[in-house]
Design a protein around this nucleic acid. Structure first.
Length: 423
RNA sequence: GUGGGCGUGGCCUAAUGGUUAAGGCUCCUGACUGUGACUCAGGCAACUGUGGGUUCAAGUCCCACCGUCCACCCCA
C-alpha cells in the first residue's frame, strides 16, 4: 500500500467507468447545442470575494464549505463551489452585454465543496451548468426547465419529480419574510434549535426543516405564493401556463427555498431515487439581482446545474445501458528481431490510412494474442519470418479464429475495405 | 463539525487467543522454441490501516488516532 491516498471526498475515475462519463458528457453537450447554448469555460478557482458576495455570506456554502486558501502572492483564492458566480463574472468582465440578448451559456467541469462525504456527496464533483442571461421573460425559465427535462428524458430516467416554487423578489420577499417570522414567533417554544437559529440568520430556511416537531408549524406557515407582488405572480403564472400547455408534470413545493442567496422568482429542483439520502439531481432558478450585485448592469438571468455523479449513480441504479468506448480494431504481432522493423513500418502505414492500430510488445505470440484478446482487437496481423520472406502478412480474425494470407502491399487497403463494409 | 458501521495481498473472502496468515479473482510464465478466450501446472503479491496496551502468546481482546462507508446539517 502506498503512503499516499487521495484526498477525502475525491475520486479516481478508472478506465472502466469512463464509458458512463463519456456518454453523459456527450448527451449533455449535444443537448445544450441543440438548444442554442454556447460553451463557456471559466477558471476552476476565482477570488474568494467573488463567491462570498455572489453566493451570499449567510449560505452554508460560504460559511463552511469553501475550499479557500492564499496563493503565493497572498491573494485569497477559492476553488469554485458552483458555476454561476464565475460565469457572471466572465459575462461582466468580457463585456458580453454587447452581444445580442439573451446569451445562452453552458459549462461542464469540476466543483469543490468541503463537506463530509457520504452517498452521492463528494468534495470534488462535477456539474453541467446552463445560464440564460439578459432577459426577464418566463420563456427563459421555461427553456432552462425544458433543458433539464430533456436531459433526463434522453438518459431514459424514470420516476423523477420536478419541484417548483417562486421565492419572490426584493419587493415582495421581505414582506413575506416578515409574515413568516411573525408566524414563527407565535410558536417560538415549539420549534427546534436549528430553526431558532435559522430565524435569525436566514428565515426562509425554516421551511425545509425536517424535524418532526417543526412540521405542524411549517404546515400552518404562510405561503410565499400568496404574498407575491403582481410582477412575480404574473411571471410565475405565465411559466406555469407554459408547463401546463406542454403537459409537463411538476409539484408545486412551497417549502422549496434553495440554499443560495441570489435566487429571485423561479426556483426548482429535480429529485430522483437511488443516491442514498440525497434527492436532488439538479437545481436552479432565476437570479435577477446577481449581475448588478457583482458590478455589472442590471441584468435578469436564469440558470440551473445538474450533478453528474448523481446522474451516473441513478443510471447505475436504473441500469441504463451505455455504449462501449471504441478500441483500435487492429493489433500487429511480430516474431523475432528482424520482423519488428517491418512491423513498425506496417504500424505507421496503417495509421497514415487512419486505421486504429496498436503494436504488441511482448515476446511470445501467445502473449501477443492474449493482449489482442484483452484489447478486443478484431484482427491480428501476424508478421513472422515466413511472412516477411514472402512479402505477406497473416490476418487472424479474432472472433472466428480463422486466418488468411494477404500481401504486404495490399494489407492496408484490405483493412480499409473491411472497415468500410462491415460484414 | 456531530453520530453509527467497517478496516486481512490490486479486488473479494477465510483463519476456537497458539507453528512460516489460507483460498478465489486479476496479472505473469509454462503445457509443440508461430497462435487468444476453456482446461491443467507453476509463479508474483500482505510485516493483517497506524500507534500504544493486556497476555507466555494478538489478525483475533482493550484504548487512541487515521481512513472509509452511511446518516445529521445542507445540498449536486
Amino acid at each position: 500500500m502506498s503512503d499516499y491516498s487521495r484526498p477525502k471526498g475525491t475520486q479516481d475515475f478508472l478506465p472502466e467507468v469512463q464509458p458512463y462519463w463519456e456518454y453523459v458528457r456527450t448527451i449533455v453537450a449535444d443537448l445544450a447545442r441543440e438548444y442554442g447554448f454556447e460553451r463557456i469555460d471559466t477558471p476552476i478557482f476565482e477570488t474568494t470575494e467573488l463567491f462570498a458576495r455572489g453566493v451570499g455570506d449567510a449560505t452554508d456554502i460560504v460559511e463552511k464549505e469553501m475550499y479557500s486558501f492564499e496563493d503565493r502572492g497572498g491573494n485569497p483564492i477559492t476553488l469554485r463551489p458552483e458555476f454561476t458566480a464565475g460565469v457572471v463574472r466572465a459575462y461582466i468582465e468580457n463585456g458580453l452585454r454587447v452581444q445580442p440578448k439573451p446569451i445562452k451559456l453552458y459549462s461542464i467541469g469540476p466543483i469543490f465543496r468541503h463537506e463530509q462525504p457520504q452517498a452521492g456527496r463528494f468534495r470534488q464533483f462535477h456539474q453541467f451548468n446552463a445560464e440564460i442571461i439578459g432577459t426577464p421573460s418566463p420563456l427563459a425559465d421555461l427553456e432552462i426547465m425544458l433543458l433539464a427535462w430533456d436531459l433526463y428524458d434522453r438518459l431514459q430516467f424514470r420516476g423523477l419529480s420536478f419541484q417548483l416554487n417562486s421565492t419572490g423578489c426584493p419587493t415582495c420577499r421581505p414582506r413575506y419574510v416578515d409574515a413568516l417570522v411573525a408566524h414563527y414567533h407565535t410558536h417560538q417554544d415549539r420549534i427546534c434549535e436549528d430553526c431558532q437559529r435559522r430565524l435569525q440568520r436566514n428565515p426562509l430556511r425554516v421551511l425545509d426543516c425536517k424535524q418532526a416537531q417543526c412540521q405542524p408549524v411549517i404546515a400552518a406557515a404562510p405561503k410565499i405564493s400568496e404574498h407575491l407582488c403582481d410582477d412575480c405572480a404574473g411571471h410565475f403564472s405565465e411559466l406555469l401556463g407554459y408547463l401546463d400547455a406542454l403537459g409537463k408534470p411538476f409539484t408545486l413545493n412551497h417549502r422549496l427555498v434553495r440554499g443560495l442567496d441570489y435566487y429571485t422568482k423561479t426556483v426548482f429542483e429535480v429529485w430522483a431515487e437511488g443516491i442514498g439520502a440525497q434527492a436532488a439531481v439538479c437545481g436552479g432558478g432565476r437570479y435577477d439581482g446577481l449581475i448588478a450585485l457583482l458590478g455589472g448592469p442590471e441584468t435578469p438571468a436564469v440558470g440551473f446545474a445538474a450533478g453528474l455523479e448523481r446522474i451516473i449513480m441513478v443510471m447505475e441504479a436504473q441500469e441504463v445501458p451505455v455504449p462501449p468506448l471504441p478500441t483500435p480494431p487492429v493489433l500487429i504481432a511480430h516474431l523475432g528481431a528482424v520482423t519488428r522493423l517491418e512491423a513498425v513500418r506496417l504500424l505507421a502505414a496503417l495509421r497514415e490510412a487512419g486505421i486504429g492500430v496498436q503494436i504488441a510488445m511482448s515476446k511470445s505470440l501467445k502473449s501477443q494474442l492474449r493482449q489482442a484478446d484483452k484489447a478486443a482487437a478484431r484482427w491480428v496481423l501476424i508478421l513472422g519470418g515466413d511472412e516477411l520472406a514472402r512479402g505477406e502478412v497473416t490476418v487472424r480474425d479474432m472472433a472466428s479464429g480463422s486466418q488468411q494470407t494477404i500481401s504486404r502491399e495490399g494489407i492496408v487497403a484490405w483493412i480499409s475495405e473491411q472497415l468500410q463494409h462491415p460484414a
